[in-house]
Write a protein that binds this DNA or RNA. Structure first.
Lengths: 347, 347
DNA sequence: TTCTGGCTTGGAAACGATACCACACGAGCG
DNA sequence: CGCTCGTGTGGTATCGTTTCCAAGCCAGAA
């Protein structure tokens, strides 16, 4: 049986080194104002015992926990996992750990997760709100004594900092691009209509289409391959079949693409396709799919940066904490590939 | 200015409710052995003050931190993000938080991350070792008073629990499948040769190829599109061009596929392709790509389950902790699609 | 010589929760 | 009537660290 030694404490180190706890404390906090010889001796004991400070005790004594909480709908989704990766990097650069929780967009799970994170007294909170309108969420976040930054979706009617994309403008750009190609009957395909991001994209689509005096065709039933197939077949068999598809999110784009491919409907000859949110193989499939690209990594990074700025402000002098733009809106980018009818330059 | 109230403490609740701290403690821990009236009164005060127990204090008093650490190479990689998602779910089911850190397969970053996690006294550790052979890692993990489960890659020469895939057998199955199709010159494409998983897969490839008395062709230079293009062109222009590719990992498979497509080399007519590790669009691209599939979600789940079992054992009676299989090896599955020459049943 | 001041150093009080122990009180029993 | 027992309750030491305060020491100034 490997007999594992429990964690030695600071006092044990002190006793072993023949000094007081104060001195050891000073040593592990940089060793300032400690006699070089004492320093070396204590360091040796620390090394020998494999001493590692107990963060819980430090925290208790009034210090930060050196952790931040991240609350996201899913880790498996590339959009969020890339956000998380960026946030993690910033946390690490600030000597903090990331506590990760997932909500599956369920407000109840979200509240529970926040509850646990707050019990753990994370220094800050990054959250992708399941429901931008939730009053419970807003109240909790405003009541709690912790800096918060919302990611991807703002918290309505609050002064909570947020980093989101300009989904509205992005959707306009995408839809307008299809219009510029001469498509007349553009359908907006989606599987959601409650999420903030999706609503914004639908709003953008509607705006562009109405401005061009085209008809507004929206199908909100696309949740998987099956439903996509049904929706697209119905649409194409209808009296006025669409000649282009604007898909409001990643999975919708993919499902639509799979259906068109399975049905042997040539893209973009019979129907064009443009999706919101880029994905790894978008440029590999045939035809390559045109998309509105979001600065995924930047979203996570900026959010985390703002959070740590807030932490610094809090700690520092009573200077105005409003130094930072609290509502960041990042711009999207149209990536022209072939599915919209473009002949993109061969890279 | 929104004046945020700091966190109230247990004693404040006690004072406010006119009871002792002991009673409040009992209330928040289930309310057993407390007079119903007192219980209600204290609960009301807790509600009013928005009291939330301080986990750091609880931890200090000898309890668990209710956190586990996860150390992975990357979050953006779908394989690991799916592992992480599964592990997170188990952690949550066990009322624990996940502390997430990423290493980019850098042993130094790995040691640093472990250091931080240990300072935080996570109750357990899940780790995807950057280097299975690392002696420093093994020593640290064996010395530390924390249960550890290795994921995807074992820690060599140690009794540390692990959950990995049978990469060797999987690679044999895949290679053998190509052999069964009649391919004679199968090249193994890879971009790594240090990682445990890749080495096992190469070992499997070699075994199958040698057993069939075919020549063993290995190219370890495929790191991105550029290098893949160079490698494949060289191979095809060589004296004895390969008729099949066995790619040892996800990104290699994709790069190879992109090159073949760009070069207009028909798959599988001119050259067949089979990859290790499934990915979302493998069945969508044309031709659909055959792969060896790993039970990704199960890896993360099992690892976390074993970890929590160990935690329970530790806490419980001195019963033999060897109740669980400590070295779990999960089997892979061949998914026949079209890129290997199969005509899979239309789903 | 005595005093001032910079370095080192240690004692001990917090931080917030838990749990051991003790105590009060009324009921049931011999 | 005195005893035990069970229920409800509170006092207080404790976990491991930081930090305030004080003190010891020696050099240089007065």
């Amino acid at each position: 049986m490997k007999k594992k030694t429990l964690h030695p404490t600071l006092s044990q180190v002190a006793r072993e080194a023949g000094v007081g706890t104060t001195t050891v404390s000073r040593v592990i906090n940089g060793g300032h104002r400690v006699n070089p010889e004492t320093l070396a001796r204590v360091r040796k004991v620390i090394e020998r015992l494999g001493y590692m400070p107990n963060q819980a005790a430090r925290t208790l004594k009034g210090h930060r926990t050196k952790t931040i909480g991240l609350v996201i709908p899913s880790i498996a989704d590339p959009f969020f996992s890339n956000c998380a990766e960026a946030a993690q990097a910033i946390a690490r650069a600030n000597d903090s750990l990331l506590m990760l929780t997932v909500t599956s967009n369920d407000p109840r799970a979200e509240m529970e997760n926040l509850d646990v994170l707050i019990r753990h007294r994370t220094d800050g909170l990054l959250i992708v709100p399941a429901n931008s309108q939730s009053q419970m969420l807003r109240e909790l976040l405003e009541r709690v004594a912790v800096p918060v930054v919302a990611i991807d979706r703002p918290v309505a009617d609050s002064s909570i900092a947020s980093v989101v994309c300009d989904n509205f403008k992005g959707a306009i750009t995408g839809t307008q691009h299809l219009i510029d190609h001469g498509y007349k009957r553009i359908v907006c395909l989606t599987g959601e209509s409650t999420l903030y991001t999706i609503r914004e994209r639908m709003r953008g689509y509607r705006k562009a289409v109405e401005q061009a005096r085209l008809s507004c065709i929206i199908d909100t039933s696309v949740k998987d391959y099956k439903s996509a197939e049904y929706a697209i077949k119905s649409l194409l068999d209808g009296p006025e079949p669409p000649d282009a598809i604007f898909a409001t999110k990643n999975s919708t784009t993919i499902h639509a693409f799979e259906v068109l491919q399975r049905l042997n409907i040539p893209v973009p000859q019979s129907i064009a396709l443009l999706g919101f949110d880029d994905f790894e193989l978008a440029s590999t499939v045939r035809p390559p799919i045109s998309v509105i690209q979001q600065p995924v990594e930047e979203i996570g990074r900026r959010a985390a940066e703002i959070l740590f700025d807030q932490l610094l402000d809090e700690r520092g002098t009573g200077s105005p904490a409003t130094r930072h733009p609290l509502q960041v809106k990042l711009q999207t980018r149209l990536i022209q590939r072939a599915s919209c009818g473009c002949t993109p330059p061969t890279p």
